[in-house]
């Protein structure tokens, strides 16, 4: 591969997107043979990779049910993720979460909620703790949600509090046009999300969410601004959910022409084409990257399937803090 720091980082971003795609395509395949269904983020990989790559280890992330991209971009082990989806002991949450609410505290991916908007309710508290000295110095918090969550009342409560309390919080809205089985055009005025955020006094950037370099640049700028002044920022990433709400979903309700338009704007192809055109990557190297991603996911499946089931006697472990009273 060609030399040069920028090119190398850009290739790494492509690599990360390929890994996320391979992971989620495998989940779709496993679901067809009886594994639990999942909410995939196929088509939204550039959002995850672009933003998470702009964060540092001291930063914290809150995410939602469509979290695989955020977790893998943060360095989560696909084997442990897959084990969690399959309900095995080696999953990040010991099989208690499944795919929908995976968190990995050691990676800084905290408090995942699958209640649309739940992550928005908790994010100000994580950022407040950071501001009050509980986290690592200089850390900020990023919260990922979608256009569906922007229609929840908690969206406004959360943005308002972050502005009033001057919290070091990056709101990342992956506007993927779909709110479960309802198209965004039925639920809000066009471009409403950025206007709503601006109405709360937040600096907003609206970016092509399928261009990983554009996302990354905007995220770097927003993160640097938050670190500099401690004030919240808002990123709207315009993207599209290429698969259904939940696997299985035949997407019979999706306009085929609209889907085809967005498939033609697949973020992985966009980044690959750019790197190929720049000469940062050649066709063989690209093929090799894809094969490596698929091979890593095959190994992840083998790891997950070899992992033990949790013992039924552990059913009620972790409901309450064992050490009830704090001295």
């Amino acid at each position: 591969m060609s030399a040069g720091g920028m090119a190398t980082d850009a290739v790494r971003r492509l690599e990360a997107m390929l890994l996320i795609r391979a992971y989620e395509e495998k989940l779709v395949e496993l679901q067809r043979s009886g594994a639990p269904g999942t909410c995939t983020s196929v088509g939204q990989e550039a959002c995850a990779v672009g933003v998470v790559g702009a964060l540092e280890a001291r930063d914290r992330i809150l995410t939602n049910h469509r979290s695989a991209g955020h977790l893998i971009a943060r360095g989560a082990d696909p084997g442990r993720l897959m084990a969690e989806v399959l309900g095995r002991v080696d999953g990040y949450c010991g099989g208690r979460s499944g795919s929908l609410h995976i968190s990995a505290k050691k990676l800084g991916v905290v408090l995942t909620s699958t209640i649309v908007g739940g992550e928005l309710s908790m994010a100000p508290g994580v950022a407040l703790a950071q501001k009050m000295g509980q986290g690592e110095p200089g850390g900020i918090v990023a919260v990922f949600f979608g256009d569906g969550a922007a229609c929840e009342g908690i969206f406004h409560e959360s943005l308002n509090l972050a502005v009033q309390w001057q919290l070091p919080l990056l709101f990342v809205c992956e506007n993927n046009d779909w709110q479960a089985f309802v198209h965004r055009r039925e639920t809000m005025p066009d471009n409403a999300i950025a206007d709503w955020a601006a109405g709360h006094g937040l600096p907003v950037a609206t970016v092509d969410g399928n261009d990983v370099e554009a996302v990354h640049a905007a995220a770097r700028e927003a993160v640097a601004a938050i670190r500099a002044d401690g004030q919240p920022r808002f990123l709207e990433l315009v993207t599209y959910r290429l698969r259904g709400h939940f696997e299985p979903d035949d997407q019979a309700y999706v306009d085929p022409a609209e889907l085809a338009r967005w498939q033609a704007r697949d973020p992985l192809h966009g980044q690959a084409d750019r790197l190929l055109a720049q000469g940062a990557l050649d066709a063989d190297e690209f093929a090799q990257l894809r094969e490596q991603a698929v091979a890593r996911i095959e190994a992840a499946v083998a790891f997950a399937q070899a992992s033990a089931w949790p013992g039924p006697r552990t059913l009620t472990h972790h409901v309450y803090a064992e050490q009830g009273a704090h001295s």
Binding site: S121, M122, P124, G125, A129, Q130, L161
Partner: peptide, 12 residues
């Protein structure tokens, strides 16, 4: 309440 939950999980 959500802020309390986030803060509690983060050391407060």
């Amino acid at each position: 309440a959500g802020t309390a939950v986030g803060a509690a999980a983060s050391g407060l």
